[in-house]
Every structure is written in C-alpha cells, then in structure tokens.
Amino acid sequence: MFGYANPERFWRLSSLLMPWVWGATAILFAIGLYAALVASPDDYQQGATVRIMYVHVPAMWMSLGAYAFIAVASFVSLIWRHVLADVAAKAAAPIGATFTALGLLTGSIWGKPMWGAWWAWDARLTSVLVLFFLYLGYMAMWAAIEDRTRAARAAAILALVGAINLPIIRFSVEWWNTLHQGASVLRAGGSALHASFLYPLLIMGLAYLFLFGALLLVRIRTEILSQRVLADQRRRAANEQLTSPIESEA
C-alpha cells in the first residue's frame, strides 16, 4: 500500500484519476441536487426544511471523515515517517474545516425554524464546534512552525489528541440528553429514514465524498509542487554559498 504513496507514483496515479473524480463529482451533484430539491417530498413534521438535511448531514459526515483521515495519516507520519502522510494530512485540513463550518451553519439555519433558536449549547453542537477549533488549531500549527519536520510532528500530535473528540461527537446524542436528534442513518438496526429521503441523502453524501477526494488530490499535488520549489530554492542557496568564496578569490 505504501508503494502507491511514493510521491512520483502518486503523481502519475492522481493525473489519471483527477478527470474521473471531478467528472463523477459533477454528475453526483447534479443528480443529488435534483433529488434533494425536486424529487424529494416534504416531511410531514419538518415540511420543506427536511431538504436542509441533504446539505447538512453530508457536510457533517465529511467533517468527521476528514478528521479521521487526518488522524490516521498523522499516525502513519509519526510512526513510519512516510513522505506523503503528513502532506495528505495537511492537505485535508482546510477541506475538513470548510465542511465543519458548512455543517454548523446549515445546522443553525435548520435549527431556527425547528427548535426556535440558531444555536444551543447542547453536547452535539458544542462538540462539533470543538472539532472546528481543532481544525483551526491544526492549520495554525502548520503555519506557525517554520521547520517543516517539527511542524509535521506537532500537528500530528495535536491531530491524534483531538481524535478523542470523534467518538464524543458520534455518541454525544446517546450519552447526554441533547436537543439534537439521535442517529437515523448510520445506526444499529438500519436506517430509520424512508427511501424517499434516504436515497437523496446517500447521493448527496457520495457527491460530498467525491468532492473531498477531488479536492484532496488537487491539494496534495499543490503541496508536492510547493515542496519541490522549496527544495530547489534551498539547493540553489546552498550552491551559491559554496561557490561565492571561490568567485571572490578569483
């Protein structure tokens, strides 16, 4: 598996994959938005606000998924010092942070007509807000430490410590008496949603997943190129330092 994580192999493989992943993302969004805004019925209790679920729930799935990805990549980076692991973790963070922000915002928009409040300090909402701050902290760690190796290590440790928040978010609705409803799709005993709501949600979930993959490929490639440029600049600077005494003697 690590063989494919070699930067040059990754580059070749991602060149082949990118058009397909972006194409699939566009198609899934087109189908998903049609299913969510046109084909899906209104809910008998929530009315049309049930349609907000099709952008809120996939954003939250990807928010948690992206953080789990960062945690696994950070673990691989710390233990095996794999070249691409910290690159992949760093590339995934802004994507995960955006999904988390969108999940919080769309949840808030749904909460106003359904709960009568934009925000409540309940366990699920608060733990997701903590996740958003973890993403910001992770990105700030990368930005604040100049030495890349030290930044990767510090950010990886933060990501692994922060991973404890993932089960807290997942089970917060069971452990505490929360305003937020319990799991209705990924739960023991199968989904509680009727097919007319479940299929649009799953299609939008796939669209968000493919978008995450597509953006991740672009951002990893950007990071690989940036590191190449940086390495080249350092090499040139080192060469100049080596050659300048000779030039001055001549």
Partner: peptide, 13 residues
C-alpha cells in the same frame, strides 16, 4: 431557510 442553506453550502464549496 432552505435557499439560505443551499446558497451557503454551494458558495462555501
């Protein structure tokens, strides 16, 4: 509410 949620999501993405 529905259009705001979709607008913010699409704009953000």
């Amino acid at each position: 509410y529905v259009w705001s949620a979709y607008g913010i999501s699409l704009l953000g993405l």
